[in-house]
Design a protein around this nucleic acid. Structure first.
Lengths: 369, 369
DNA sequence: TTGTATGCGTTATCAA
DNA sequence: TTGATAACGCATACAA
């Protein structure tokens, strides 16, 4: 064998800089077979636990494998097996946008941990460009993933396109009533049932539910939950009032003001999420109302911030990590049984009672007359 | 052709559930060639712009490709090309742990955007298990990525192991003086030069630098920067005081107290990062000192929180997104030119002057006697 | 129980 | 300008 013309270190000295260390070469199953003095199928069978062979021989080969550091090449394996053991992640609008919200970080934590245990990898697919053009991201089309997880809100037209993916798709933290897509989201319906139930137990009969007027599955599920709860607990439309003629918190303020000083004013307010609840809590302060003496307030999500409010807010807790790990389990099921009927699940939530809720008081409006 | 024995919709009705929609089949280059009435090499050449052929024919094939939705299979391509066009991400200690810090979310944003433009995918490798055992993550060993990015702090023993990866590795937001590993991190040296320079300009001659006693590259780089700045601006060891006999903020408080009421008390404090600066700002308040009248305070990082402090803190700004996108550029360079000498770069920082810095005042200790 | 041979889908070489 | 073919590394059906 002929050695290199230049030795690496002398070359480094002459150039005055360091060269990268040569990378360890990957060993293939063929070379391994030669070393182990057997055929590649024996190696393959030993490594994968397939075929029939004596445990002794199997262990012998496996030991040798770890000794010389043999790992089956993933590209070869993927091609042969027609799968990648990789789950694609598609965030709307973008990973970083979503990760700025701790909510999704924690959901991903659960997803990642559970999937990782089963030896799946996660591919961060940035489909921004394609998504904006109403197309399926390239890495999906090219068969780069076994399944695509859609995290966050996607609109109908996007879903319609993504359904044409060459792999199953999964909606995490969202769902769709019509499209046959596996999904897992928060049980907003049950959450509102609990919230309204608790308020009626306290004696409230005038309850307002504030929800943005947006085409968002979770919001609409919570609205339906509120309406169902009203029926179950015998509240009329005048008693259980749905307010959703607004899309941002800024629009909300005047609406709130009007509603609070009307004849049939609510003695309790439920907000569609905690961000809104924090806003409302501050708005109520500005309007001179005391929570919970004058009015009760309930949020939804159990964001960290609401426990820091004055007063700490009663809210509906979402187990975020659980949302991720449950989603992962459903994904694994789909992968294992492609013919499984569509699964749409809802992660249970729990009411967390803090200090923003109390029995209704006498009409505070008198103090404002 | 013989049709299916059961029609899907009648089956769904009889089972009382929906079946997943059949997935669109992926078309291979071979089938495509048959349809296009040419050979697979012609298709391949047309798609990849290789070989010689008339532009007309090339466009014709490409148009047909998008019409029937042909996308070269990624597994076949990976196997043939011996690369994946995928960059592995390894977080210490875990993705979610790091993403809870907005800093890394923004760094990742820059990294992801730039890499995505060049058609690279990101693989979220959870190497927790392997990392803890001092091993290289399996997806790396199996050739799942072309390069591995290490995000966050890794210790020497981990780096020593990871250097044995079968692909290049890259340190993002960290570095190492000895190991020949590409890296990009903040110019902590320059940052402290600016901070100390600004303080001396204001007239300060008694400056303390607070840094945790941890084996962290960035911390130690900032320490070196402080010491170099002291020399450059002619401050003696009694004037430029390095305090790093502590590892947590809790340990810091008594040290701070002692130092502030000593004879040669500092008229300005520089903190190794903003988290610490916020802590110190509060500690100073507790000790009855006014910032910046009694003492000046400078942080490092330009976290959002410091602009919200009372007073808003002067700090050294890190362009996080830039850190990510610059890192991506270095990564692309390495991929393009594997023989490139090791590149260790430092992202410039800028001093952001707010209201926590002012010229030194008369000795405030008098008021405390 | 072990080995041989085939094909997964692609790109690149080389001959036509 | 185009096409036949080998090779990438692996898993598996089947032969021995």
């Amino acid at each position: 064998m002929i050695g290199p013309i230049f030795k690496k270190d002398s070359m480094e000295r002459s150039l005055g800089l360091k060269l990268p260390p040569s990378m360890p070469l990957r060993i293939t199953i063929k070379e391994f077979a030669r070393v182990a003095n057997c055929s590649i199928s024996t190696i393959s069978n030993a490594m994968n636990g397939t075929g029939r062979m004596s445990p002794a021989r199997r262990n012998e080969i496996r030991r040798l494998a770890s000794q010389i550091g043999f790992q089956p090449n993933i590209a070869g394996r993927n091609l042969r097996l027609q799968r990648t053991d990789t789950i694609g992640l598609l965030f709307n609008p973008s990973p970083s946008e979503l990760f700025k919200n701790i909510f999704y970080v924690e959901v991903m934590e659960g997803l990642e941990e559970t999937l990782y245990e089963k030896d799946y990898n996660l591919l961060l697919g940035s489909g921004r460009k394609e998504l904006a053009q109403g197309q399926i991201p390239k890495f999906v089309l090219k068969g780069g993933v076994d399944l695509l997880v859609l995290v966050g809100p996607f609109d109908d037209s996007q879903l319609e396109v993504l359904q044409q993916s060459p792999c199953p798709i999964f909606l995490l933290d969202s769902s769709h009533d019509e499209f046959p897509i596996d999904s897992l989201t928060t049980d907003g319906h049950g959450g509102l049932m609990q919230a309204v139930g608790y308020l009626t137990e306290l004696g409230h009969r005038q309850i307002a539910f504030l929800a943005y007027d947006l085409p968002n599955y979770n919001i609409n599920l919570r609205i339906k939950g509120f309406q169902a709860a009203a029926r179950r607990f015998g509240l009329s439309d005048q008693q259980a009032v749905l307010i959703h003629n607004f899309q941002t918190n800024d629009e909300l303020f005047p609406i709130l003001q009007r509603c609070l000083f009307a004849d049939q004013r609510p003695t309790a307010i439920i907000c569609v999420n905690d961000t809104q609840a924090v806003f409302v809590n501050n708005a109520l302060k500005k309007l001179g109302l005391n929570v919970p003496r004058d009015i009760s307030l309930i949020g939804f999500d159990d964001d960290f911030v609401v426990s820091q409010q004055e007063p700490p807010l009663t809210t509906v807790r979402i187990e975020r990590k659980g949302l991720g790990s449950e989603g992962a389990k459903m994904i694994l099921k789909r992968l294992k049984t492609p013919d499984l009927p569509i699964q749409k699940a809802f992660q249970p939530v729990t009411l967390v009672v803090r200090e923003s809720t109390a029995p209704p008081s006498l009409d505070f409006t008198k103090r404002h007359q």
